[in-house]
Design a protein around this nucleic acid. Structure first.
Length: 563
RNA sequence: CGGGGCGUAGCGCAGCCUGGUAGCGCGCCUGCUUUGGGAGCAGGAUGCCGGAGGUUCGAAUCCUCUCGCCCCGACCA
């Protein structure tokens, strides 16, 4: 491909709207342009990257036994109404009506559609298992699109679905997907983890996410290097370190101490010169069955999702409710001397604590859990760096990461509501057991850029780079340079390589800068100086190392590198 | 949805406070010179100052409304 004929609108200045590194570099490198919030045009370079990623995905999905299909992006509402998600999902779903006034939506995902298909076509255990996938646009009216192509309102997703007779079959399909995903992300040159994740609105039992570590990521994962425990913080368990008590500041007997106008843990802790871990944070919440207290240690944050799993739905109490229920304002409430239901974090199990006295302007010290109050004990705190692994006790670490793929064991949730059933060997009707599996190709591209760049630009992993090699003749008008360039260009193409050749009449500096920005992994620089000494230069984008090679040897050299 | 920021030439920005000729750098076009890390000189083109209303003799600038984009948070199959 000739650079002069290929549309690569590089820009020198950093566009004002970009923040994430991958976003900046993809705009500057002429990869993408923004149409509106969360809507991007993929220019030729980016589309080549996407196609390479999608090709790898197809190869591995096919190898795992999945079959590619294609489903509409526009869906009739009634199927989504049958599973209830038409009502469960709010503004995030794009909804519209057709000319006949029928409710429609743009597909956020395709569980409903594929289950409808399965319900009409799969009848017998003899037809199972099946694994079907597609690479298709998804539409989600995101509350906040961000970070370039990382979070957009329309995006391409590889989504696949498995149909099995039973739980064992699902486990096998799930395992196959996990295996394929490892191969896909490895082949794409990413660093990634597989972590436990929250099934959320998908329903179902097990779920894992594939996470590419990057500061641009929106998720935080908890990792234990010792035992391999890996989980998204939305469900990760951890054991906080013991309370930092000096021993003397927390008396043995209960004692109310005046803490005028000191309400938050930070304020009281500073006022009493006692570590936040010696306090109990008491939060009054209103659940479906009335008010209850959630208790976490002063140095911890309440994890609302974890609490919802054990306490059901809830909302924070309003100021007047706090006053009515406990007779005191929020800064001074505590778990003792009241009969409210209490759910306490495991970090409070040991130690002696200070907490609100349920009396205006006072806190109580000497509170012993299980002695001065009773509670249900659960892990309801947010895991932090420095906590111990809930599994093996060694130190955990936290890492920001981009979610590049996920796998869900759905079970019978969709097959029951859409009547996707089969007859088993005994002629008995059973629901098909399903799994659902997603990959975001654009996120793979963005994560690859986030993980592979330097001050000059992108450094693509070979497997997904838009081209294999960029040839840079420094003065294309020079006859010898031109001849050498064209010979090498033609021969590399004959060898099956994808080559970008910078035939532009530009100064060398511009060609070098653009080449580094675009990030093709190898550059062949052909200049007058080198040719005089009988060599061209083979430069590795990542290391900037240059090797002098005779023009007659360059083809075999490149062949060796890509072997 | 809450908080913050920004809309002026293709891109990055100044001008706005204190109303009066719309500017700078890069890019773009022409010519000459230049050619191993974003060249030099000379000449040139380019603006509904996001939009609508208002105040005023006069609005990029002041007021009201509105649309859009970004960031933080909430949300996120």
């Amino acid at each position: 491909m000739l650079f002069s004929r290929f549309f690569i609108p590089t820009v020198r200045e950093i566009p004002a709207e970009a923040e994430a590194v991958s976003h900046i570099l993809m705009l500057r490198g002429g990869y993408v342009r923004q149409l509106a919030a969360g809507l991007y045009i993929y220019l030729p370079l980016a589309w080549r990257v996407m196609n390479r990623i999608m090709r790898i995905i197809r190869e591995e999905m096919d190898a795992a036994g999945a079959q590619e299909i294609s489903m509409p992006g526009l869906h009739p509402a009634d199927i989504w109404q049958k599973t209830g998600r038409w009502f469960d999902i709010g503004d995030e779903m794009f909804r519209l009506k057709d000319r006949g006034g029928r409710d429609m939506c743009l597909g956020m995902t395709h569980e409903e559609i594929i289950t409808w298909l399965a319900s009409t076509e799969l009848r017998s255990y003899r037809q199972l298992p099946q694994m079907w996938y597609q690479i298709q646009a998804k539409f989600r009216d995101e509350a906040r699109p961000k970070s370039g192509i990382l979070r957009t309102r329309e995006f391409i997703m590889k989504d696949s679905y498995s149909f099995d007779r039973d739980q064992e079959g699902l486990a096998e399909s799930y395992r196959k997907h996990a295996g394929a995903y490892h191969k896909i992300f490895s082949r794409c040159g990413l660093r990634f983890y597989q972590v436990q994740s929250d099934p959320g609105m998908m329903g179902g039992a097990a779920a894992h996410e594939f996470m590419a570590p990057s500061p641009a990521g929106e998720d935080t994962v908890v990792l234990c290097k010792q035992c391999g425990y890996a989980a998204n913080t939305e469900l990760a368990l951890s054991v906080p370190p013991p309370q930092k008590s000096k021993g003397d500041e927390v008396g043995e007997a209960l004692e109310d101490i005046p803490t005028p106008n000191k309400r938050t843990v930070t304020e009281v802790s500073a006022f009493l010169k006692t570590d936040p871990s010696c306090f109990i944070k008491s939060l009054l919440l209103i659940g479906d069955e009335g008010p209850f207290l959630a208790l976490v240690r002063g140095d911890r944050e309440l994890h609302e999702k974890k609490l919802r799993k054990v306490a059901g739905n809830f909302r924070p109490a309003r100021k007047d409710e706090v006053k009515n229920i406990l007779g005191v304002e929020a800064g001074f409430i505590g778990p003792h001397n009241n009969d409210l239901k209490k759910i306490a974090d495991i970090s409070l199990k040991d130690g002696i604590y200070i907490t609100g006295a349920n009396k205006e302007g006072f806190h109580t010290k000497g509170i012993k859990p299980d002695v001065h109050f009773q509670a249900q004990w659960h892990d309801i705190h947010i895991a932090k760096e420095g906590d111990a692994c809930a599994n093996c006790g060694s130190a955990i670490t936290l890492d920001q990461a981009i979610e590049i793929g996920n796998i869900f064991q759905l079970g019978a949730k969709y097959s029951v509501s859409l009547k996707a059933v089969y007859l088993d060997e005994n002629g008995k009707e059973r629901p098909i057991i399903m799994g659902s599996y997603g990959i975001g190709p654009a996120r793979i591209a963005a994560a690859a850029v986030e993980q592979n760049n330097d001050k000059d630009g992108i450094i693509w992993p070979r497997s997904i780079a838009p081209f294999d090699v960029e040839i840079i003749p420094l003065d294309f008008a020079e006859k010898e340079i031109q001849e050498t360039t064209e010979t090498i260009y033609r021969e590399l193409i004959n060898e099956g390589f994808e080559i970008l050749m910078d035939d532009r009449d530009e100064r060398p500096g511009i060609k070098f800068k653009d080449a580094d920005l675009i990030g093709i992994p190898y550059q062949i620089v052909i200049g007058k100086k080198g040719l005089k000494e009988g060599v061209v230069e083979l430069k590795t984008r990542r290391t900037k190392e240059t090797e002098r090679v005779r023009p007659s040897d360059i083809i075999s050299k490149v062949r060796d590198i890509f072997k």
